[in-house]
């Protein structure tokens, strides 16, 4: 397997609340207004991408209260608090603020009663309100947090976009990954990264990109470092691409088990995502670049519902069935009738 087990690293292990607020305002364009303890934002940390609605905690059920998560107070919680007497209200709110909550968000532009805001200020828990509707806000926030806490790993290989299919070429040093990538670029495909490929997990998708340092540089053995973007222009590169196929180049070895039919689909696991994996032995005279294009086109065909190996298999099966049923005795010949060279 091309990837020895290597523990993935998260982009961020923790995020200060201050950073979270600034990024949400700037990047996600969310309107957030501070209600309480804004000055405490720099000391508070968000450590996971999950969110929590503290409804039950407010009622006093604290056995499984995920206080370390971001708390969202929507219309339901807000309404519940408002209907309590002032005394009970304070007590209910204190149920949650006695924990070291990172931050509380109020949605739908709601604002808590002054006494509760003072309680939060006292306990040093920041509260922000947003005009966004609860589900929409939670969706945006979750998406943003998923990105911030995404898992990353670094793999050694060349990542190329071939006909819109993201192919990662891996293999031992010096086997010719960069040369194949360069050849693909020459044929009009786009280089994502060479040598150092960063893989970021985004939900069920793996995104591959280059690092800031190695962006669009390439090492050609015997030549040194070349800059692909300067040489081939903007059309030859792209920042990121979804990883769809992993191809491993290896030297020809008679003991190597090679897929001859294409009926078996091997997969490789990267950050717990299963990616189609193709083992490609190299022999003199083999044009890996063209094969890479064929891999991409075959992948597209399969995606559009046509699997050549399956189709061929079906053809053989029906032919065998016809023969066994004695329906078509002429099938003993490979060609039914040869017309001669008249086209």
């Amino acid at each position: 397997m091309p990837f020895s087990t290597h523990s993935p690293i998260p982009i961020n292990e923790k995020l200060t609340v201050e950073e979270l607020i600034t990024k949400l305002r700037k990047r996600v364009n969310i309107n957030l207004i501070a209600c309480a303890a804004e000055d405490k934002c720099c000391d508070k940390y968000v450590r996971e991408a999950e969110l929590n609605r503290p409804g039950l905690a407010l009622t006093g059920y604290l056995d499984v209260f995920s206080w370390h998560r971001i708390q969202i107070i929507g219309n339901t919680e807000n309404d519940y608090l408002k209907k309590l007497s002032q005394d009970k209200q304070r007590k209910a709110f204190d149920n949650i603020t006695k924990f070291d909550i990172p931050i509380i968000f109020l949605t739908n532009g709601n604002i808590l009663p002054q006494a509760l805001l003072e309680n939060a200020t006292q306990r040093g828990i920041p509260i922000f309100t947003t005009p966004y509707e609860t589900t929409r806000f939670m969706h945006l926030l979750k998406d943003f947090l998923d990105d911030q806490f995404a898992l990353q790993t670094m793999v050694h290989g060349a990542m190329v976009d071939v006909y819109g299919v993201g192919i990662l070429i891996v293999g031992k040093s010096g086997i010719g990954k960069s040369e194949v990538a360069l050849d693909l670029v020459e044929r009009g495909h786009r280089l994502v990264a060479d040598d150092v490929v960063m893989i970021t997990k985004k939900g069920s998708v793996l995104m591959a990109s280059a690092t800031i340092m190695s962006k669009h540089f390439m090492e050609i053995h015997g030549l040194g470092i070349v800059d692909v973007m300067s040489m081939f222009g903007i059309r030859s590169v792209r920042y990121q691409k979804r990883l769809e196929i992993v191809t491993e180049l290896s030297l020809w070895d008679d003991t190597l088990e090679i897929n001859r039919t294409g009926l078996d689909h091997e997969q490789v696991s990267i950050l717990d995502n299963e990616i189609p994996y193709i083992k490609l032995p190299i022999t003199p005279g083999k044009n890996i670049t063209v094969i890479a294009e064929v891999i991409a086109m075959n992948h597209l065909l399969k995606h559009y519902g046509y699997d050549a190996a399956e189709a061929f298999q079906e053809k053989i099966k029906s032919s065998i069935a016809e023969k066994t049923n004695g329906m078509n005795p002429s099938m003993k010949r490979a060609i039914e009738y040869f017309e001669g060279d008249v086209e």
């Binding site: 020895s4 670094m154 050694h156 040598d195 340092m213 540089f217």
Partner: peptide, 24 residues
Amino acid sequence: SDFFIHMYGYRVNGKSILGVMTLA
């Protein structure tokens, strides 16, 4: 032997010049 360098939580191939230089 295979050679890798661990740094900043990353694991780069020590036989790849771009990989090593990425660490700066």
